[in-house]
């Protein structure tokens, strides 16, 4: 199995795709950090209500958590795309034949892709977090808040961010096995991630109005991207489920897509 994981990581390293996605992730960190830094300085100087930040959310630790996870929104999409490409590339470039000749036990191939994907998700998180920590700690210290790294709220955000990166890469692999057409999978997943979340939010808001029950809104957690948001958002209320509900939903999607992907791949004729 370790041979297979090594082979999968080598596949990623020997093409330029991950490099482009890493550049994309880096740019999104830079943009998001600049925005979050501006937001933090506005909020912490008492202007948080303009942005809907009140109470706990306007506190220094909450803003620090936000800063230290800058770039997560697009970063998660990029690692998902890497996961997708790990599978669809095999069909797009017809390397599935070579891969399955070297390893006829296809379950092992998909499992090793899942492991390699988690490792890659971890690497993306690590690099993102190191950049965020350096920039965030500097920014907060300069503004006399200290690094705030001792706060559980901040540590929690970092750990859940790690979990999100690992799960979304795995989810990408699952999506790739379900939609093997490269362009189809990439477009579908990006649209569902970027636009789908807004549409789903709107639908649930409408539904809540129709049913005259705001608690309905919390059910949008069934949508993966919404679940991801719930997972990294502290606190819980009538409209917001607890973080672990989001985590469970997300893990559920990763497990189901992984298992279905394995079953489909085992039966598929490669020609």
């Amino acid at each position: 199995m370790s041979n297979l994981v090594r082979s999968e990581l080598l596949k990623i390293r020997t093409t330029s795709t991950w490099w482009w996605l890493a550049i994309g992730a880096f740019l999104s960190i830079a943009l998001a950090f600049a925005f979050n830094a501006w937001l933090a300085s506005e909020t912490l100087s008492g202007g948080g209500e303009e942005f809907g930040y009140t109470g706990d959310a306007a506190s220094a630790p909450a803003q620090a958590a936000n800063l230290y996870t800058s770039g997560q929104y697009l970063g998660l999409m990029f690692v998902m795309l890497i996961g997708i490409l790990m599978v669809t590339n095999e069909f797009f470039h017809q390397t599935a034949t070579t891969t399955f000749l070297a390893t006829p036990r296809r379950t092992s191939v998909i499992v090793s892709k899942l492991i390699a994907a988690s490792l890659l998700g971890f690497a993306f998180w690590l690099v993102t977090t190191i950049i965020d920590l350096a920039a965030g700690a500097t920014f907060l210290s300069l503004n006399d808040y200290g690094t705030l790294l001792g706060e559980w709220e901040v540590q929690r955000a970092l750990l859940l961010n790690l979990m999100a990166y690992a799960i979304w890469t795995v989810l990408g692999v699952g999506i790739g096995t379900l939609i093997t057409n490269q362009l189809g999978a990439v477009i579908t997943a990006s649209v569902l991630y970027l636009i789908g979340t807004q549409v789903v939010g709107l639908l649930f808001l409408l539904l809540a109005n129709v049913l005259d029950n705001m608690a309905v809104i919390k059910w949008q957690v069934v949508w993966p991207a919404a679940a991801s948001q719930v997972m990294i958002t502290p606190g819980e209320n009538e409209m917001l489920p607890a973080w672990w509900v989001g985590a469970l939903v997300l893990v559920g999607y990763a497990v189901v897509s992984g298992v279905v992907g394995i079953l489909i791949t085992r039966r598929r004729d490669v020609s």
Partner: peptide, 10 residues
Amino acid sequence: LEASSAHKGR
């Protein structure tokens, strides 16, 4: 099995 079975960018 087929001549074109490698990643084009590798």
